[in-house]
């Protein structure tokens, strides 16, 4: 699970994330919403140890992710936005490389399992750079799953997927419900409604809502209200 306390990140004079606090319980699937530039990716990068916070605390599975970053990173699988991959490698080579980097014992079995889970077994001998965007996205997901981490952090996981792939992805994530904690950022509201138990909304670096979802939640109206209200007054 994730515990975030008063997390801030400053780039020069700009405060990208401003004292954000939240908790994600074990087995929960939580959506992280916000307009473009709200600080979603910066927050995820701090959770995964790619960026150090300016202030605040992060605990991943009870481990202080700022002080013991390496240990915290063993507990999570991360799929960054745009899914950067080594394009010259074959899919199975890439996954074996990542398994070795993550010190996965019995790498062969782990690679086979990740290939099946992400639905990329049929392209395992193909060169990553020659795959379609949808497949590359799923190779990124296979990579995040390779060490069988208890926590998955996914940044815009369905951007670039076709409707069928989006459906498969949603089914896969829903299938993790209870067994893995999933924290995913997106700005596709229907996706959140389809897979998430709860949603955290940020705007201009601040948390503006933390809502448990049910069938009746009018997410679209709520999002519009939370992320646009007040903007007219703020602009000169």
């Amino acid at each position: 699970m994730i515990e975030v306390d008063a997390l801030s990140k400053r780039y020069g004079t700009q405060l990208a994330v401003n004292e954000v606090s939240f908790r994600v319980e074990r087995g929960e699937i939580v959506g992280f919403l916000g307009p473009n530039g709200a600080g979603k990716t910066t927050t995820l990068r701090m959770l995964t140890g790619y960026l150090a916070p300016t202030a605040g605390k992060i605990r991943i599975e009870g481990i202080d992710a700022v002080r013991s970053s390496l240990r915290a990173r063993t507990r999570l699988g991360y799929m960054p936005e745009g899914v950067p991959l080594y394009r010259e490698m074959r899919v199975h080579e890439y996954l074996h490389h990542r398994a070795a980097l993550k010190k996965v014992s019995e790498a062969r079995a782990a690679v086979d399992r990740a290939l099946v889970l992400a639905g990329v077994t049929d392209v395992k001998n193909r060169i990553v750079g020659q795959l379609s965007k949808g497949y590359r996205q799923r190779v990124g997901l296979a990579e995040a799953l390779i060490a069988d981490p208890p926590l998955l952090i996914l940044d815009e996981p369905t951007s670039g997927l076709d409707p069928n792939q989006v459906r498969q992805f949603r089914e896969l994530v829903r299938g993790f419900g209870g067994s893995k904690t999933v924290f995913l950022s997106t700005h596709i509201l229907s996706e959140v409604q389809a897979v998430c138990d709860r949603v955290i909304i940020i705007r201009e670096g601040r948390k503006v809502a933390d809502i448990t979802l049910d069938q009746t939640t009018k997410l679209e109206d709520m999002f519009a209200e939370l992320t646009t209200s007040g903007i007219a007054e703020e602009s000169p």
Binding site: G49, Y50, L70, L76, Y78, P80, P84, L101, K102
Partner: peptide
Amino acid sequence: QSGTLEVLMTAPVS
């Protein structure tokens, strides 16, 4: 440049 540094540096590697 290709963004793979992010994947590399979020793996448990110093």
